Each structure stands twice: as structure tokens, then as C-alpha cells.
Computed example of a mutant assay.
Amino acid sequence: MFGFLRGGTPRIAPAEAVAKVKAKEAVLLDIREPMELRATGRAQGAIHVPMAAFAMRCDPASPECLPELKNGKPIILYCATGARSGMAGSMLTRMGHAQVFNLGGLSDWMAGGGQILR
């Protein structure tokens, strides 16, 4: 019903996302707000970049861009349900990142066997 909110960012299977992050073959971004992290924890290996800081921290043209996002590795995003991460994925693609995937929500990470840090 709300699939249009996920943008054009391709989905990645949870188990594949967990395996790629564990093998350090991809960068995992948690784009939820700080209060969401406090309530539920975050995926092991995830870098937290809330939407308020997204453009500044993820755009390679920004002096504040995270070094982890400058190495050309695939980027996997998640939020609470997959809607915001789908939109953020479209933004990353427009910023010039070549391989961007939407995992969906934190529950998808857990469904793929990923661990949660609290």
C-alpha cells in the first residue's frame, strides 16, 4: 500500500545484508532518530546517521562526509519500517553513490540473523 515511499532503492534480502556487513563488504547505515536507537538499540556494525545530518554526513562533496562512505563499498540502509531508508537511498544515488540498498527496518536485520546492540 505504501510501497511508493520506499523510492527506487532496490531491496536486499536480510540474510544477504547481514552477511555482507559481517564480511565488511558493505556499509550499514541506521538513519533513525536518536530516540529510536535508545528505545530499540541498533544493528551490530551500523553507523548512525539521522536524517537531520544525512546530507552533510553522506554526500561525498561535503567536507563532513563519513570516510566509510568514500571507499566505494555498497551502502545498506535501514530505518524502522523501510520507508525513510528507501527515500534516503534515492538521495544517496543522486549524491553519486553507485550501490545502494534498502534493507527495510530493524526487524529485517534481526530476521536475517543480525545482532542488536543496546
Rank of each mutant, 00 (worst) to 15 (best):
G41A: 10
G113S: 08
S85A: 13
G104C: 00
A52D: 14
I76R: 06
R6F: 08
L106K: 00
G96F: 10
P63I: 10
P14L: 00
K70H: 08
P67M: 07
E64I: 03
T9E: 01
P67G: 10
E25R: 13
M51N: 02
I76M: 09
R118Y: 10
G8K: 07
M51Y: 12
Q99S: 13
T40I: 01
S90H: 03
L28H: 10
N71I: 05
R57L: 15
L117C: 02
I116G: 03
A43S: 14
A55F: 10
I31F: 06
T93I: 11
C65P: 01
E68R: 10
A111N: 06
D108M: 09
A88C: 11
P34T: 14
C65A: 15
S85N: 09
M87W: 07
A13L: 03
R6A: 12
A46Y: 04
Y78P: 06
T81W: 06
V21M: 01
F54R: 08
R32T: 15
G72H: 04
Q115W: 06
R6K: 15
A23C: 01
D30F: 01
I47R: 05
M110I: 14
R118I: 04
A43H: 03
A88P: 04
V100G: 04
A52K: 15
H48C: 13
R118K: 15
G72N: 13
K22R: 15
G7L: 00
M95K: 07
P10K: 06
G41R: 09
H48G: 09
P60R: 12
C58M: 12
A83C: 07
R38M: 14
L77N: 06
E25H: 00
G41H: 05
Q99E: 15
P34A: 13
A15V: 11
R32S: 13
L106W: 00
R32W: 12
M91Y: 14
K70W: 00
G45N: 05
L66H: 09
S90K: 11
C58S: 14
I76W: 07
R11W: 01
E64A: 14
R11Y: 03
G89L: 01
R38V: 11
I116N: 02
F4Y: 13
G104F: 08
V100F: 02
K70R: 15
R94V: 12
I76C: 09
L28P: 07
D108K: 10
K70A: 10
I12C: 02
E33Q: 15
N102C: 10
F2Y: 11
K70V: 01
L66W: 05
E25W: 03
G72I: 05
H97Y: 09
Q115M: 11
G112K: 01
T40D: 09
